[in-house]
Write a protein that binds this DNA or RNA. Sequence first.
RNA 1: CGGGGCAUAGCGCAGUCUGGUAGCGCGUCUGCUUUGGGAGCAGAAAGUCGGGGGUUCGAAUCCCUCUGCCCCGACCA
Length: 572
Amino acid sequence: MRLSSMPIATQKEAPADAEIVSHQLMLRAGLIRKLAAGIYSWLPLGLRVVRKVERIVREEMDRAGGLEVVLPSVQPGELWRESGRWDYYGPELLRFSDRHERDFCYGPTHEEVITDIARRELRSYRQLPVTFYQIQTKFRDEIRPRFGVMRAREFVMKDAYSFHIDAASLHETYQVMYAAYSRIFERSGLHFRAVEADSGAIGGAVSHEFHVLADSGEDAIVYSNAGEYAANIEAAAAPPPAHERPPAGPAMEKVATPNAHTIEDVCDFLDVPASSCVKTLFVCGDHDNEVVALILRGDHELNAIKAAKLPGIADPLQMATAAQILQAAGSNPGSVGPVGLGCLTYTDLSAANLADFVCGANEDGFHLRSVNWVRDLDETSSADLRNVKKGEASPDGHGTLEIARGIEVGHIFKLETKYSDPMGAKVLNREGKSIAMPMGCYGIGVTRIVAAAIEQNHDERGIIWPAAIAPYQIMIIPINLPKSARVREAAETLYERLGRQGYEVLFDDRDARPGVKFADCDLLGIPVRLVIAERGLDAGTIEVRDRRDSDSENIEIDSLDDYLQDRLAVSE
RNA sequence: CGGGGCAUAGCGCAGUCUGGUAGCGCGUCUGCUUUGGGAGCAGAAAGUCGGGGGUUCGAAUCCCUCUGCCCCGACCA
């Protein structure tokens, strides 16, 4: 492709609302343009990257035995009522009605549609297992779309669904998909980590997420510094207390704590560590205006996912209002505590193991110290309610936990019969009995991979594409093209030859100064830069530069083929 | 949804307080010049100042209203 005939609109300055580096670079390099909040157009260079990712995904899905389909993006609401998600999914589901006032939605995911296909098409265990996949546009009406295509409302996703006769078969395919996902991210040139995860709105029991490691990631992932363990912090089980609860000490006393409203204030005021305090959080219960109290140690963070799974607590988790708290505790937030509470209460395992702790007195401006379970208040139901912390023991018994940031680019689930059961997707088994098919579900954020790749591969000059997903592999930059017939001749010949050899080549034949071309080449992140100039022609060499390196080198023109083959080798 | 902020040329911004009919940098176009890291000179095009309403002789500027966008948001007990 000649740059003279491609309007690449590179920019020196990024739009002010682009926050993270991938978003800025995608705009500056002219890969995408925003149409509305969370809705983006893909320009030619950006689309080429998307297509490259799609190709890798498609090859690996095919290799894993998947069958490609395309399911409608507009789906009847009726189907969603059948699965129960018309009500459960919430405002993220973009709903509308047609001219007959029938409910429809734009698909945020496709379990309902594929399960409908399966119940119509699959009759016998002999047809199983089978895996369908598609690469298609989804729409999720996110509360806060941000970071460009990283968290967009409209995005391209690969979703796959497998159907089985039993759990063993599902497990087998799950493992195959796990391996396929690992290959996809490896081939895309990404540093990633597979972690145990919560399955969220899609449902099901077992799931793993694939995270691209990057500081800008929205998820916290925890992993053992010595063993294999890795999990999303949402799903990571906190280790139970290592020792028995210590015996109770001095009698409970009420102390005035004027103007101390936060754990930090109270700790400073009473000169105790946060780990000897408990905090009491109120969340909404299952029923109107009911609240549930959650007791955690002062130095621990609530894990909303864990809490929302407990009986009696609204899912998703919602904090109580100040008015509800006042009614339940008899005092304002800042002085509330578990002693004398009448509402349903859960205590985190670590908080339940404390003795002689400090908590709010349910009286404004007062706290209690030397509080002890059993002696001063009844024990409550206890559960794991908190996030794990860096340095805690890994659940697999090897090493301690580290915390890193990750961008979720893939997620695989064992759905079991969550959809096939209510929607009646059944087949006859070997015994002639009709059973609901266990299902698996496997998603990859195709467009998010593009952004994640940039987050992980860039420098101050621009993008550094992994070779496998670069929009073009090679940029040819001639020096003084307008004046030098030799340079023109050599550049044209090389451009023509490399194209014939199957390379994807950009030829910067614009009438621009070299500095402009170098800057654009760096910004666009083309893996190999070839400079054609008089001095190299005299010496019989060509100047090559790997985008990952800061310096170029001159190589014999004869060895160019070997260099390119080596540098641009793509695993298949 | 709550809180905060922004909206002026393709991009980045000034001008708003103190009303007088819109400017800077980058980019774009033309010409000359230049050609190894975003050159220089000369000229040019391009803006319903987010929409609507109001005040005023006069509104980007003041008032009301609507819309869009951005950021933050239970971890406090």
